[in-house]
């Protein structure tokens, strides 16, 4: 047997292609939320102990650990709590750069959702700015987050910081 060993120059990479399909259960709870989007309604869940409203709905409050069985509608408009201006492309997203990704606290909700702000210059977006959802037209809404195309300024006066400080 030789003791010289295999070639000195090693193979440098081993490729592996992964094929991992998934099919997520939405669950009865989330289905109600998603179905409501078809009717241009955003549902939140109300904590049975503190009364806080979570959007999208969750079955239990992480904070109080109490169930949030009650689903209630919140407004499709609210206030920009924080935001950032995106200048780098994201794979699989074709929005024209730069654009604004914002945290929006909907009226009636105690936590914010993430939202795309359009129909204004990025430089004009500010904390406290009032915005509203722009929905897909009737007949095109599928019961998914994509039923809201984006949010846009309402032109209302800005909300004072103190009014959304607890929802940052």
């Amino acid at each position: 047997m030789s003791t010289s060993g295999p070639p000195k120059e090693p193979v440098k990479y081993v490729e592996k292609q992964l094929h991992l399909p998934y099919c997520y259960v939405a669950g009865d709870y989330k289905v109600r939320y998603l179905a409501a989007l078809k009717d241009k309604t955003i549902l939140g869940s109300k904590c049975s102990r503190t009364g806080k409203v979570f959007v999208p709905p969750i079955v239990a409050s992480p904070e109080s650990f109490a169930p949030c069985d009650e689903l209630i509608p919140v407004a499709d408009r609210g206030v920009v709590t924080t935001f950032c201006i995106v200048n780098i492309p994201v794979i699989g997203r074709s929005i024209e750069l730069p654009y604004v990704a914002a945290s929006v606290a909907l009226d009636g909700a105690d936590i914010s959702i993430y939202a795309l702000i359009q129909e204004c210059a990025p430089a004009d977006v500010r904390m406290g700015m009032r915005v509203e959802a722009v929905w897909k037209p009737d007949g095109e809404r599928q019961g998914s987050h994509e039923d809201i195309i984006h949010f846009r300024p309402t032109g209302e006066p800005d909300a004072p910081l103190a009014s959304f400080m607890h929802r940052l």
Binding site: V25, G27, D28, Y29, V59
Partner: peptide
């Protein structure tokens, strides 16, 4: 085999 009504965290809660 499959709980079609609840997601994993809902089952765990």
């Amino acid at each position: 085999a499959r709980d079609e009504h609840r997601i994993a965290t809902e089952m765990l809660y």
